[in-house]
């Protein structure tokens, strides 16, 4: 079984971000990490390979620095690594990114393409569904349990009430939620392997995607302006002396919450 797991490198959200004078992210000041949701997708890909055999390829679209995110996947146990990188990709929107991923997927013939359900930076949750639409393959999204056979897959899609059980034939596009598994830590051997593994870097020409369809040229969003968000202020803080319940109830009435 050929499995491709798609990854994104994102700014680390554990630190508050610094903004420069134009309200743009001061990228130099921010640590970059692998998108936390993608670690669940990597783990699921590795579990599938352990059950079914085959290969797992990590695929990312991004600048040269995104190699670090791909290396983390290799350290966890992924054996092949591809980064689609091209100056013309800068400024891609979710459709542009999906087009680049689809271009790369056409060179790799995957039975299952795995994604994390969203990225923690853009948080748009658009790319997996767009990739499925562009490939005209089944979309299995928000998956909390995955069972793959030779030519089909059955999944649980997490909902607000429980889950839906969905089946589809392969190849298919799957996005997973946190909680589908417990991502493994990279082993020492894996970390050594990651240092040695060749990461293939593909340009737009390599994947047959036109520069006009991606990057700033293909993006439709036009930013009109930025403002700093109104920061929340600290309110009254009261030490409980046994009457806190009444204090809270009064406050809820005063703020029209009751």
């Amino acid at each position: 079984m050929n499995i491709v797991v798609c990854l994104k490198q994102v700014p680390d959200t554990t630190a508050e971000k610094k903004l420069n004078a134009e309200f743009r992210l001061d990228r130099a000041s921010v640590e970059k990490i692998i998108n936390p949701f993608d670690e669940y997708a990597i783990e699921e890909a590795l579990k599938l390979k352990e059950q079914k055999g085959g290969t797992v390829t990590a695929l990312s679209v991004g600048p040269e620095s995104a190699k670090e995110a791909v290396r983390k996947a290799v350290a966890m146990g992924v054996e092949k690594a591809v980064l689609v990188s091209d100056d013309a990709l800068a400024g891609s929107d979710s459709l542009g990114t999906a087009r680049a991923i689809v271009g790369a997927l056409k060179k790799t013939s995957a039975d299952i393409v795995l994604f994390g359900m969203a990225s923690t930076d853009a948080a748009s949750a658009q790319v997996p569904a767009k990739v499925a639409a562009l490939l005209n393959q089944p979309l299995l999204s928000y998956v909390s349990k995955l069972e793959a056979g030779e030519s089909s897959a059955t999944v649980r899609r997490q909902t607000d009430k429980g889950y839906d059980v969905i089946t589809a034939s392969l190849p298919a596009v799957v996005s997973v939620v946190k909680g589908i598994n417990e991502p493994r830590y990279p082993s020492l051997k894996g970390i050594m392997q990651a240092k040695r593994t060749q990461i293939d870097v593909w340009s737009l020409a390599d994947i047959g995607v036109s520069a006009a369809e991606v990057g700033k040229a293909g993006a439709t969003e036009k930013v009109l302006g930025f403002v700093p968000a109104k920061a929340r202020q600290a309110g009254k803080v009261v030490k409980d002396d046994g009457t806190a319940a009444a204090v809270v109830a009064d406050f809820l009435v005063a703020s029209k919450c009751l």
Binding site: K17, L19, E221, K222, L224, F226, V227, P228
Partner: peptide
């Protein structure tokens, strides 16, 4: 950016 700014945009 973690809610620190609000961006207004159009298509």
């Amino acid at each position: 950016f973690g809610g620190s700014i609000e961006v207004t945009s159009t298509v």
